[in-house]
Nucleic acid binder design. Structure first.
Length: 587
RNA sequence: GGGCGUGUGGCCUAGCGGACAGGGCGAGAGGUUCCUAACCUCUCGAUCCCGGGUUCGAAUCCCGGCACGCCCGCCA
């Protein structure tokens, strides 16, 4: 409703300006502060004061006089507060919101018929996912959810770097060492099992006698050459390692949950010839130079000082070359592409964008979302060195702490719904993992995070459980109403006028904003604004909960309050769903 | 050295041109015969990094500093 109201208000301001013969290039539409009753406001009067030769409040009053609320369905009244033009919602606005939010898909926007590939995580398949990388799947998955909910056709991609030296080293190490010369795996899962070979391999390459290293390097070289030549046997050897490790990593990511529609392998673009084809076209570009026996792109005219080498002196391609072929593939198969990347890939991201532009691609269709790295207080995390905290360990710890919390609260519990062990376990998972996710997704990606256990696993206010609790409470009310024989009335039978308590109105007004929040989050690729919204929503719901009894309400108010709770449940449930945080029915 | 990003009460964070800078943590005081107290109410606490500028209006835009982070491989 808010989206519709905003259009209506824009119309109203525009025609008022028109009627007074004033320019309408900037309508100054904004959302007023919380303590103002209006749902929308305009500050045009400031800008027009000079032109009209009158003080802003006077201009605002003149404009207000030009607008007849009766002409606009969702506008109840237009008032001024000093220089501001305030638009108050009509009863129809509340009625339409209450009705629309009875739909359990409330907030989902109309299909846009636009396909988008969201690529995220894409961590090299070298071992367990660590916390340093956890921001990527969490932001990426939430972003994919946002876009899906906003009406896009979303495919979730994990780009697999299976062609580099790292994988050649891994393959050599896997074939070279025996299980019994390795330490016990930290966890009984594929990537923990496999990473032992990788770490051993790297240790040997660093510390072993020269001739042993030489021998190893020869083998690693031959694997890389095999991949470059498209040798099937080599490809199969590497694939075995890649697929095994990736399978384990996938299980870890699924815990978040973060699932993928497609694992797009880098070698695919070597094998299908698209990288070679791309190299030919790159060589034809004006910016291409053959320098030091390697083909490169001079991008300094495009604001990038660093040359981009796209063909080595030995004639082989680089990661960057294949990634360009990969991006061209996305451009051919999708209307839009979104990539979630760590800030350490920023330069590469700019090179990709610029080069695609040179190749004649419309880079407006590509969005690159960058986030800052998660560091430990003591420094960086690294898979190769085995430093850092595994994402699995973080999630386990989160669940353990949440379980403890649930058990502690069990005694003092007011509600007698007798949670059993399975409930405790379910809640521990929902709250524990939800808290980790919410903590990460609610922050602006650009800000650097230093990981601290206590901060990441704080279940107090402004965290996932605070919002989850609202959902559980709404479910509780609806459940008890059903048991008492009070069903939520049909959407068409509601009269929002009966929600006359300010707290109920404010909750409804908050519900009304949800689709606009989704739209904004999708447009800007900012999933964190959904998290901010859930917090405001929880405040509004808690105030309503405090002031408005539902089950014991007078008969003439109960139906609408029940419907409001149902609407609230859909809204907060869907918002949490978009964030990828579980919405418990009880906790 | 260059490029990009970040800098908001003791700590974390929202806001990113408009109405007194919102929250949370923390500290203190209260609230449960009533739909879950993982909640609510009240109090304490801010030179919005510093200095200039643009504007009727700047945390927000511009310029110059400072601090921190990331990047600057024929690695991925």
């Amino acid at each position: 409703m808010f989206l519709a109201a905003r259009r209506v208000v824009e119309d109203a301001v525009e025609s008022a300006l028109d009627a007074l013969d004033l320019p309408a290039d900037d309508l100054g539409i904004e959302e007023p502060p919380e303590d103002v009753d209006a749902i929308l406001a305009s500050s045009v009067a400031f800008r027009l004061a000079g032109e009209v030769g009158a003080a802003p409040p006077e201009v605002a009053a003149d404009l207000a006089a030009e607008i007849d609320p009766a002409d606009y369905e969702y506008v109840g009244d237009v008032t001024t507060q000093g220089p501001y033009l305030n638009f108050l919602p009509s009863n129809a606005y509340f009625g339409a919101t209450l009705e629309a939010a009875q739909d359990d898909e409330y907030g989902r926007l109309d299909p846009k018929d636009v396909s988008v590939a969201v690529e995220h995580t894409s961590a090299n398949p070298t071992g367990p996912v660590h916390v340093g990388r956890a921001r990527n799947p969490i932001i990426g998955d939430a972003l994919a959810n946002v876009l899906d909910f906003a009406g896009y056709d979303v495919d979730r991609h994990y780009y697999v770097n299976d062609a580099g030296r790292q994988m050649a080293v891994f393959t050599w190490a896997y074939e070279r060492f025996d299980e019994d010369e390795l330490p016990e795996p930290e966890r009984n899962r594929a990537e923990y099992d496999m990473v032992r070979y990788y770490r051993r391999g790297n240790t040997v390459l660093e510390d072993a006698p020269e001739d042993e290293v030489e021998q190893a390097e020869a083998e690693i070289q031959s694997i890389m050459q095999g991949l470059e030549d498209g040798d099937e046997a080599t490809y199969d050897r590497v694939s075995e390692v890649v697929d095994t490790v990736l399978g384990g990593m996938q299980e870890c990511l699924a815990r978040l949950p973060a699932d993928f529609d497609d694992f797009v392998k880098e070698t695919r673009f070597m094998r299908d010839g698209s990288t070679d084809d791309l190299v030919d076209r790159l060589e034809d570009l004006e910016e291409a130079v053959y320098d030091d026996e390697a083909w490169q792109l001079e991008l300094d005219d495009h604001g990038i000082e660093k040359n981009l080498v796209f063909l080595r002196s030995d004639g082989t391609s680089l990661y960057a070359t294949r990634d360009l072929a990969h991006h061209e593939w996305k451009f051919e198969n999708y209307d839009r592409a979104v990539t979630v990347l760590g800030e350490d890939h920023k330069l590469q991201a700019e090179q990709v964008r610029t080069t695609l532009e040179l190749l004649g691609r419309d880079t407006e269709r590509l969005d690159q979302v960058l986030y800052s790295y998660v560091n430990l207080p003591e420094g960086k995390m690294s898979t190769r060195d085995g430093t850092g905290i595994d994402l699995d360990d973080l999630l386990d710890e989160a669940i353990d702490r949440a379980r403890e919390e649930v058990e502690d609260r069990l005694d003092g519990r007011l509600r007698n719904d007798n949670l059993d062990d399975a409930d405790v376990e379910r809640i521990a998972h929902q709250v524990g993992i939800g808290a980790v996710r919410y903590d990460i997704v609610s922050k602006q990606p650009a800000k650097a995070i230093t990981f601290e256990w206590d901060r990441a696993l704080d279940f107090e206010a402004q965290s996932a459980p605070y919002v989850q609790y609202v959902h559980a409470r709404a479910c509780g009310i609806l459940g008890e109403a059903r048991e008492a024989g009070h069903d939520v009335p049909d959407a068409g039978d509601l009269d929002a006028d009966r929600l006359d308590v300010p707290e109920a109105r404010r909750l409804l007004a908050t519900i009304a904003r949800f689709p606009a929040v989704i739209e904004g989050a999708a447009e800007d690729q900012h999933p964190h604004v959904v998290a901010t919204y859930t917090r405001e929503f929880a405040d509004a719901f808690n105030a309503f909960y405090r002031e408005c009894p539902v089950l014991d309400a007078d008969a003439d108010k109960r139906d609408e309050r029940l419907a409001l709770v149902a609407a609230a449940r859909h809204t907060v449930g869907n918002a949490l769903g978009v964030l990828g945080v579980a919405a418990p029915e009880s906790m």
